[in-house]
Nucleic acid binder design. Structure first.
Lengths: 99, 99
DNA sequence: CCAACCCATAGCATCGGTGCTATGGGTTGG
DNA sequence: CCAACCCATAGCACCGATGCTATGGGTTGG
C-alpha cells in the first residue's frame, strides 16, 4: 500500500532534516511536476516505459520521478517536456502573481 | 575580458559533447536564469556577497551561477527566489504559449 | 599608496540525482 | 495456468552541482 504515497508523507520525510525549510518548497514543486507528468503521460496513453524511451531514460527513472522520489534536474525536466510535446518553463515570478 | 561571457560561448562549449541536444536547452535556461538573477540582484542594490548570505550560499556560488557555469538545481533556485522576494515557477507549458 | 570593497575563478570534498540492472507484485488475456 | 504487460523499488556506479576556502585582478575612496 505504500503505492501512491501522498504529499504529506514526503513532507514529513523532508522536513525532518535540518535547514530543510527551503528545500521543502523544491520538494513540493518536484512532487507537483511528477503528478503533472503522470497526467500528461496518461493523456498520451503511454506507459512509463514508452515515455522513458521517448525521453531517453529508463522506466525506473520515470517511476522514481513520478513518485516524487527525487528532486529532478533541469536537463531531465527538459527531456520529459520534449517527449510530452511541452515546453519547460522556469522563471522567477512576482510574488503577487496567481499560482 | 573573459569577464561577462556571452551565450554563444556557452553554446559552443556544451554542444561539443555527445547527446547534448537536450541538455542544450537546459543550459540555455540556466543562462537566462543567471541573467535574471543578476538583474534582480542589481535591482535590489545588492552585491553577490549580500545575495549569497540572504540565500544561504557563498559569493562564489552566486558568481558561478550568474555566469552560467552550472545548471542549477531546484533547491538552489528556490532559495534564490526567496532571497529576491520572488516565487519560483516551474511548469510544462503548452508549446503554443508565448515565451 | 593602501585599504576595502567588487567580482571571477580554481581546487577540493561531499551529496544527491541519474542511469542501469534486476526484482517483485499486480493485472489482464490467452 | 501462464505469458505479457503494467508499475514500484532496491542496489550500485557515475557524474555533476553545491559548499567551501583561497586566490587574483579591478575599482573606488581614504
Amino acid at each position: 500500500m505504500s503505492d501512491r504515497l501522498d504529499w504529506n508523507d514526503l513532507r514529513e520525510r523532508r522536513m525532518a532534516e535540518p535547514g530543510a525549510a527551503e528545500t521543502y518548497e523544491a520538494t513540493r514543486i518536484a512532487f507537483e511536476l511528477g503528478q503533472e507528468v503522470r497526467h500528461l503521460r496518461e493523456g498520451h496513453g503511454w506507459s512509463q516505459s514508452q515515455l522513458a524511451r521517448a525521453a531517453g531514460m529508463t522506466q525506473s527513472a520515470v517511476a522514481r520521478f513520478e513518485a516524487g522520489g527525487t528532486v529532478p534536474t533541469l536537463p531531465v525536466l527538459e527531456r520529459l517536456a520534449r517527449a510530452l510535446d511541452r515546453r519547460l518553463d522556469v522563471r522567477f515570478a512576482s510574488n503577487a502573481d496567481a499560482a
